[in-house]
């Protein structure tokens, strides 16, 4: 039961009284070997859970940073199969950090839900976020993941009102993701004051931890969200580091991990009123 890793991690964080920091990295960006080096360095840099994007040609809910990351990864030949190989390699050294895959339906449809779920569990995946799979279409995928001990993580958004919330969390497990802005990834900025009541509402209705993402770019913003959420997800700001490091011919792994370190510290100390530096 690999979903157990998610539950264990959130239980431990609750005991510590702090929010989780969840970095998002794109599999294969800028290439498979570097992505693996980044992945391996994430726990020590302060990642409590890890989201790994699997690239898709037509990511309709992503802003330019993650669109470009997917294009870079696809150009280097990254696939869903390659993504699972990356996770398996990561698992050789890390048995405790939960890994959530995030992406779009079509590569999963192509693989077949049952076969994919079996292979993903073997590779060490703990949960899936599938952006274009709303609860209305989720049962076949959720069944396959559940049978293999993985969680299908559902997205809630500012448009998910009280009437709709029960539909969204009906099969939720692991945690619930709250998309803090109506929009694509990495464009608008999340507002902690507006996020707080929604996190409370979703936590209460689902009985699960609530992770907040989309629109968190800086340690300051991450710290503010960490005051109110159970987990803080940062994606676009990290893939932008990859892009800049490549452009400036810098060490990509070091640059990304250094950004992760500053964001993770901000989250770690947020509720103690301490500053990150």
């Amino acid at each position: 039961m690999t979903q157990a890793r998610i539950d264990a991690r959130f239980a431990a964080l609750k005991a510590e009284g702090r929010a989780a920091f969840v970095p998002y990295v794109m599999a294969g960006d800028p290439d498979a070997a570097t992505a693996l080096a980044i992945l391996k360095g994430l726990p020590e840099a302060g990642a409590d859970l890890i989201e790994v994007g699997f690239p898709f040609s037509d990511p309709m809910a992503e802003g330019p940073p993650i669109q470009r990351a997917a294009q870079r990864a696809l150009a280097k030949g990254m696939t869903l199969k390659g993504t699972l190989a990356l996770i398996a390699a990561f698992r050789e050294a890390d048995q405790t950090t939960p890994v959530i895959l995030m992406g779009y339906m079509n590569p999963l449809v192509t693989w077949g839900f049952q076969a994919f779920a079996r292979d993903a569990a073997v590779a060490g995946v703990d949960g899936m976020i599938v952006v274009d799979c709303p609860p209305e279409e989720a049962d076949p995928l959720a069944d396959a993941l559940e049978a293999n001990g993985m969680a299908l993580i559902f997205l809630t958004t500012p448009t998910t009102d009280d009437k709709r919330l029960p539909t969204v969390i009906r099969r939720a497990s692991g945690f619930v993701y709250y998309v803090s802005v109506a929009g694509v990834t990495g464009v608008k900025e999340a507002d902690a004051a507006a996020v707080a009541p929604n996190v409370e509402r979703i936590r209460k209705a689902s009985g699960l931890p609530v992770a907040v993402g989309f629109g968190i770019k800086t340690p300051e913003r991450a710290a503010a969200i960490a005051q109110v959420a159970d987990a803080v997800v940062v994606g676009s700001a990290l893939v932008d580091e990859v892009a800049e490091a490549v452009e400036l011919n810098e060490d990509v792994t070091r640059r990304v991990l250094s950004k992760v370190d500053s964001l993770a510290k901000a989250v770690r100390f947020a509720r103690r009123g301490l500053t990150a530096v």
């Binding site: 309709m60 952006v131 274009d132 709303p134 279409e137 448009t159 998309v179």
Partner: peptide, 20 residues
């Protein structure tokens, strides 16, 4: 009622759009 023509069709959209 679910927007299907046999297996085809459906509503594979991000949650933000589902209420709309």
């Amino acid at each position: 009622a679910k927007g299907r023509f046999g297996d085809y069709g459906g509503q594979y959209v991000p949650e933000t759009l589902m209420p709309l």
